[in-house]
Amino acid sequence: MPSSPAPASGPTPAPGPTSAHPRRLPGGPVLQDSVTEAIALAFFEELASAGYARLSLEAVAKRAGAGKAAIYRRWTSKLDMTVDLVSAVAVTTSGTIDTGTLRGDVLAFLTEVADALQQPLPARIIPDLIAEGHRNPELAEALFTAVRDTRRAKATLLLERAVLRGELPTNTDRELALDFLAGPLYWRLAVVHTPTGRDYLDRLTDKLLAAFAA
Rank of each mutant, 00 (worst) to 15 (best):
V89S: 07
K62P: 02
H134E: 13
R165F: 01
G67P: 00
P7R: 12
G95H: 08
D149A: 14
V191N: 10
I97Q: 15
T205A: 07
P137F: 02
T170V: 15
A114M: 04
E138R: 07
D199Y: 15
P137N: 04
G67F: 01
L117F: 03
Y52H: 12
L85E: 01
R135V: 04
R24F: 06
E138S: 05
T93A: 15
H21S: 13
S9R: 14
D202S: 09
T101W: 14
V147M: 13
Q119V: 07
H21I: 11
G166E: 09
L129Y: 06
V163P: 02
T82S: 00
G16S: 10
R74Y: 03
L204S: 03
R188H: 07
A48E: 04
L178P: 10
R24N: 08
R124H: 10
V147S: 13
A20S: 11
D149S: 13
S19E: 15
V106L: 13
A40F: 01
P195R: 06
A213G: 05
R198Q: 15
I71K: 06
L157M: 01
A190E: 06
R103Q: 14
L164G: 05
Y200T: 11
A6D: 06
S4P: 10
L201C: 08
A142V: 03
L201Y: 05
P122K: 07
V60Y: 05
A38F: 01
Y52W: 14
A50Y: 02
S87I: 04
P17Q: 09
L139D: 01
R151F: 03
T92F: 05
S77L: 04
A42S: 13
D105C: 08
D105Y: 05
P15Y: 03
R124L: 14
A14V: 08
A116W: 02
L201F: 08
P120Q: 11
S34I: 10
A40S: 14
A162F: 04
P5Q: 00
E175Q: 15
P127W: 00
S94L: 12
A48I: 06
L157F: 00
L143S: 03
L176M: 09
A40K: 01
D206S: 09
Y200E: 12
R151G: 00
A177Y: 00
S34V: 13
L164Y: 10
D128H: 06
Y72N: 05
I71T: 01
D105E: 12
D149H: 12
D173R: 14
I126D: 13
D33F: 12
A140Y: 09
N171G: 13
L139P: 02
P5L: 00
L201N: 08
T101C: 15
V35Q: 06
Y52E: 01
Q32I: 09
A114I: 01
R124D: 07
Y186S: 12
H134K: 11
T145A: 11
R74M: 00
A70I: 02
T172P: 08
E160A: 10
R103T: 07
F43E: 04
L158Q: 10
P29K: 14
